[in-house]
Protein backbone atom coordinates (compact mmCIF):
# COMPACT_ATOMS: atom_id res chain seq x y z
CA UNK A 1 0.00 0.00 0.00
CA UNK A 2 2.57 2.56 1.13
CA UNK A 3 6.29 2.91 0.72
CA UNK A 4 7.79 1.35 3.88
CA UNK A 5 10.91 3.50 3.55
CA UNK A 6 8.89 6.67 4.10
CA UNK A 7 6.48 5.47 6.75
CA UNK A 8 8.57 5.36 9.97
CA UNK A 9 9.05 9.12 10.02
CA UNK A 10 5.29 9.53 9.85
CA UNK A 11 4.37 7.23 12.72
CA UNK A 12 2.80 9.50 15.30
CA UNK A 13 4.04 9.44 18.89
CA UNK A 14 1.75 7.75 21.39
CA UNK A 15 -0.59 8.47 22.93
CA UNK A 16 -2.41 9.67 19.85
CA UNK A 17 -5.64 11.39 20.77
CA UNK A 18 -8.14 12.77 18.31
CA UNK A 19 -11.67 14.03 18.16
CA UNK A 20 -14.06 12.36 15.73
CA UNK A 21 -17.79 12.47 15.34
CA UNK A 22 -19.60 10.00 17.58
CA UNK A 23 -22.48 8.50 15.60
CA UNK A 24 -23.42 5.45 17.66
CA UNK A 25 -23.17 6.31 21.32
CA UNK A 26 -21.30 4.30 23.95
CA UNK A 27 -17.77 3.61 25.06
CA UNK A 28 -15.40 0.80 24.16
CA UNK A 29 -11.77 -0.11 24.60
CA UNK A 30 -9.43 -2.73 23.19
CA UNK A 31 -6.39 -3.25 21.00
CA UNK A 32 -6.49 -1.41 17.68
CA UNK A 33 -7.03 -3.47 14.52
CA UNK A 34 -6.48 -1.45 11.36
CA UNK A 35 -8.08 -2.31 8.00
CA UNK A 36 -6.79 -0.40 5.00
CA UNK A 37 -9.57 -1.51 2.67
CA UNK A 38 -13.36 -1.07 2.91
CA UNK A 39 -15.23 -3.91 4.65
CA UNK A 40 -18.61 -5.43 3.89
CA UNK A 41 -19.60 -6.92 7.25
CA UNK A 42 -22.04 -9.14 5.37
CA UNK A 43 -19.79 -11.59 3.55
CA UNK A 44 -16.41 -10.49 4.91
CA UNK A 45 -16.82 -11.39 8.59
CA UNK A 46 -17.71 -14.79 10.09
CA UNK A 47 -20.22 -14.31 12.91
CA UNK A 48 -19.30 -17.63 14.56
CA UNK A 49 -15.62 -16.79 15.00
CA UNK A 50 -15.36 -13.02 14.57
CA UNK A 51 -12.72 -13.64 11.90
CA UNK A 52 -12.36 -11.66 8.69
CA UNK A 53 -12.91 -14.26 5.97
CA UNK A 54 -13.33 -11.87 3.05
CA UNK A 55 -10.55 -10.81 0.73
CA UNK A 56 -9.38 -7.85 2.83
CA UNK A 57 -5.56 -8.19 2.67
CA UNK A 58 -4.73 -5.96 5.66
CA UNK A 59 -6.95 -7.86 8.12
CA UNK A 60 -7.54 -11.22 6.45
CA UNK A 61 -8.02 -13.94 9.10
CA UNK A 62 -7.73 -11.40 11.92
CA UNK A 63 -10.30 -11.67 14.71
CA UNK A 64 -12.27 -8.50 15.35
CA UNK A 65 -13.63 -9.69 18.73
CA UNK A 66 -12.94 -7.09 21.42
CA UNK A 67 -10.84 -4.91 19.09
CA UNK A 68 -11.27 -1.29 18.18
CA UNK A 69 -11.57 -1.79 14.44
CA UNK A 70 -10.32 1.08 12.27
CA UNK A 71 -11.52 1.08 8.66
CA UNK A 72 -11.73 3.64 5.85
CA UNK A 73 -15.36 2.94 4.92
CA UNK A 74 -17.99 0.24 4.73
CA UNK A 75 -19.30 -1.23 1.51
CA UNK A 76 -21.59 -3.93 0.20
CA UNK A 77 -24.81 -5.52 1.30
CA UNK A 78 -27.49 -3.82 3.36
CA UNK A 79 -27.43 -7.10 5.34
CA UNK A 80 -24.57 -5.58 7.37
CA UNK A 81 -26.94 -4.79 10.26
CA UNK A 82 -27.62 -8.49 10.84
CA UNK A 83 -23.95 -9.39 11.01
CA UNK A 84 -23.17 -6.67 13.59
CA UNK A 85 -26.17 -7.80 15.66
CA UNK A 86 -25.11 -11.43 15.31
CA UNK A 87 -21.49 -10.70 16.26
CA UNK A 88 -22.78 -9.30 19.54
CA UNK A 89 -25.11 -12.28 20.10
CA UNK A 90 -22.17 -14.64 19.52
CA UNK A 91 -19.83 -12.68 21.80
CA UNK A 92 -17.63 -11.76 18.84
CA UNK A 93 -18.40 -8.06 18.48
CA UNK A 94 -15.65 -5.46 18.17
CA UNK A 95 -15.32 -3.11 21.16
CA UNK A 96 -15.88 -0.11 18.87
CA UNK A 97 -15.60 0.96 15.24
CA UNK A 98 -13.64 3.96 14.00
CA UNK A 99 -14.61 4.65 10.39
CA UNK A 100 -13.16 7.49 8.34
CA UNK A 101 -16.31 8.01 6.25
CA UNK A 102 -19.86 7.79 7.51
CA UNK A 103 -21.11 4.21 6.97
CA UNK A 104 -24.28 2.86 5.33
CA UNK A 105 -27.54 3.29 7.32
CA UNK A 106 -27.66 -0.49 7.72
CA UNK A 107 -24.27 -0.50 9.49
CA UNK A 108 -25.44 2.22 11.89
CA UNK A 109 -28.66 0.27 12.58
CA UNK A 110 -26.71 -2.93 13.31
CA UNK A 111 -24.29 -1.11 15.60
CA UNK A 112 -27.15 0.46 17.58
CA UNK A 113 -28.79 -2.99 17.97
CA UNK A 114 -25.46 -4.63 18.83
CA UNK A 115 -24.38 -1.78 21.15
CA UNK A 116 -21.17 -1.21 19.22
CA UNK A 117 -20.03 2.42 19.48
CA UNK A 118 -19.00 4.14 16.23
CA UNK A 119 -16.84 7.23 15.82
CA UNK A 120 -16.39 8.68 12.33
CA UNK A 121 -13.53 10.74 11.03
CA UNK A 122 -10.05 11.12 12.48
CA UNK A 123 -6.64 11.90 10.99
CA UNK A 124 -5.16 9.65 8.31
CA UNK A 125 -2.19 8.89 10.62
CA UNK A 126 -4.53 6.99 12.96
CA UNK A 127 -5.34 4.52 10.14
CA UNK A 128 -1.86 2.99 10.07
CA UNK A 129 -1.09 -0.74 10.18
CA UNK A 130 1.71 -0.15 12.68
CA UNK A 131 -0.86 0.85 15.28
CA UNK A 132 -2.21 -2.71 15.34
CA UNK A 133 -2.41 -3.93 18.92
CA UNK A 134 -2.10 -0.48 20.50
CA UNK A 135 -4.62 -0.12 23.34
CA UNK A 136 -7.39 2.21 22.23
CA UNK A 137 -10.21 3.87 24.11
CA UNK A 138 -13.27 5.20 22.34
CA UNK A 139 -15.93 7.47 23.83
CA UNK A 140 -18.55 8.08 21.19
CA UNK A 141 -20.57 10.55 23.26
CA UNK A 142 -17.65 13.00 23.15
CA UNK A 143 -16.16 11.62 19.93
CA UNK A 144 -12.79 11.12 21.66
CA UNK A 145 -10.46 8.34 20.48
CA UNK A 146 -7.21 7.73 22.36
CA UNK A 147 -4.53 5.31 21.11
CA UNK A 148 -1.84 4.30 23.60
CA UNK A 149 -2.12 4.53 27.35
CA UNK A 150 -1.69 8.06 28.59
Amino acid sequence: MSDPAVLPALLPPLPLVFQGRGIVMGTGAGPALVALEPISFFGDVDIRTGRVTGDIPSVRNACIRGCVLFLPLTRGSAGAWRILHQLQKHGNAPAALVIRERPDPSVVQGAILGRIPIVCGGPLEAFDLRLNGVWTEVDASSGRVALGRA
Binding site: A78, W81, P105, Q109, G110
Partner: peptide, 24 residues
Protein backbone atom coordinates in the same frame (compact mmCIF):
# COMPACT_ATOMS: atom_id res chain seq x y z
CA UNK B 1 -36.92 -1.19 3.03
CA UNK B 2 -34.38 -3.60 4.42
CA UNK B 3 -34.05 -5.34 1.06
CA UNK B 4 -31.63 -3.53 -1.24
CA UNK B 5 -33.44 -4.82 -4.35
CA UNK B 6 -36.66 -3.19 -3.14
CA UNK B 7 -34.83 0.03 -2.23
CA UNK B 8 -33.30 0.45 -5.67
CA UNK B 9 -36.49 -0.55 -7.52
CA UNK B 10 -38.56 1.91 -5.48
CA UNK B 11 -36.09 4.80 -5.84
CA UNK B 12 -35.38 4.23 -9.51
CA UNK B 13 -38.35 2.68 -11.29
CA UNK B 14 -41.12 4.21 -9.18
CA UNK B 15 -39.50 7.42 -7.89
CA UNK B 16 -40.28 6.71 -4.23
CA UNK B 17 -37.74 7.78 -1.56
CA UNK B 18 -35.92 5.05 0.31
CA UNK B 19 -32.54 4.30 1.94
CA UNK B 20 -30.72 0.99 2.16
CA UNK B 21 -32.07 0.14 5.59
CA UNK B 22 -31.68 -2.78 7.93
CA UNK B 23 -33.77 -3.84 10.91
CA UNK B 24 -34.87 -0.25 11.54
Amino acid sequence: SLESTVTIFANSVVGARCNRDGFF
